[in-house]
Computed example of a mutant assay.
Amino acid sequence: MFFIKLKHITFALLLTEKVKELSKYNIDIYGLEDKQYDYDMESGDAFFEEMEQDLIEHGQFKTHVTLNKSATMIQLRFHTEGSVTLACDRTLEPFEEPIDSDERIILKFGDHNEELTEEIEIISRNTNRINVARYVFDFIALSLPVKKLHPSLRTEEDEFDLEDDEEEGTLVYTSGETEEGEEGEEEEKIDPRWEALKNLKK
């Protein structure tokens, strides 16, 4: 009986800690004047545990949130710095990955809640409080490299990436305007004697 009671108490404490951790990211917007506000938030492992995800287990970061409120919308800018622990895709060894993210979200006032794009959402005019924890996590996740490689393996990988980028740049990203510009420059550099020979050939 004592063990069951102790288990319930432990569960209640964990639930309280979870609420407390995520409550750091509550922003009361009811009654805010139309101007800029600044908020500083800091978290560690507990944050990633409570976000119910399996991408990041450990990390430490600080986030500065700039909120600009107007009559029709709220603009939020998130600047996050810190580091997280990731597992290398090749060796499965853990390594520290620095975080430096600068993103924004726009919340427009309306009569319902809806996500329009990745950057724009509609929130009800009657919303009193917003919790920005999910935005912070999403922006941290977006700042991470697609290929999670230990720093000691990145030199070789970067060389492959550069080669791929050069091939793609030549075949895919060259625009007609650039080609015309390059041809114009080449014509200007042609020796006049070669130009004369070209006319004779015609």
Rank of each mutant, 00 (worst) to 15 (best):
L76Y: 02
M41W: 02
S70L: 01
D161H: 10
K148C: 06
P98K: 00
E183Q: 12
E119W: 05
Y37L: 01
I56N: 00
G176F: 06
Y25T: 06
T127F: 01
A133P: 03
D34E: 15
D38Q: 14
D45F: 04
F160V: 10
T117S: 14
L6P: 09
V172Y: 13
E183P: 05
E21Y: 07
K202D: 13
K24A: 05
R134V: 11
I56D: 00
T91P: 07
L32M: 02
I99V: 07
E183W: 11
K189L: 14
W194V: 14
P145M: 04
Y173S: 14
A71F: 11
L67V: 06
L76G: 04
M1I: 13
K148Y: 03
T10G: 10
D161I: 11
D34L: 06
Q75I: 06
R129S: 12
T155K: 08
T16A: 15
F48P: 01
N131V: 01
T91V: 04
E17Q: 14
E195P: 09
E185D: 14
Q53P: 03
L142E: 04
D138C: 05
F160A: 09
K108I: 07
W194T: 12
S175F: 04
D28L: 08
D28A: 12
V136R: 01
K62A: 05
V84K: 00
T174I: 09
H8G: 09
R154L: 03
T72C: 07
L6K: 15
S143R: 02
K35N: 08
E180F: 10
D34R: 10
S152V: 08
L22R: 04
R90H: 05
N131P: 04
H112M: 12
E93M: 06
K202L: 09
E166N: 10
K189W: 10
A87C: 08
I140Y: 01
I120R: 08
D28V: 04
E167F: 09
Y25E: 01
E96S: 13
L142T: 05
V84L: 02
P151I: 06
A133N: 03
R193Y: 05
E114P: 03
K5I: 11
D34T: 13
I122G: 07
G82D: 00
D100L: 05
I190A: 12
M51N: 03
E17G: 07
S175T: 07
L107F: 02
A12M: 15
L116F: 02
E188S: 05
D38N: 15
A12P: 08
L149C: 02
K62Q: 14
A12H: 15
M73W: 07
E114W: 11
D100A: 03
E195Y: 06
L149D: 00
R129I: 05
Y173T: 13
L149Y: 03
K35W: 06
K35M: 09
L197T: 11
E168F: 12
H79D: 12
N113F: 09
E97F: 00
A71V: 11
S124H: 12
H64N: 12
F48H: 00
Y30H: 13
T10P: 08
P98G: 04
D34I: 06
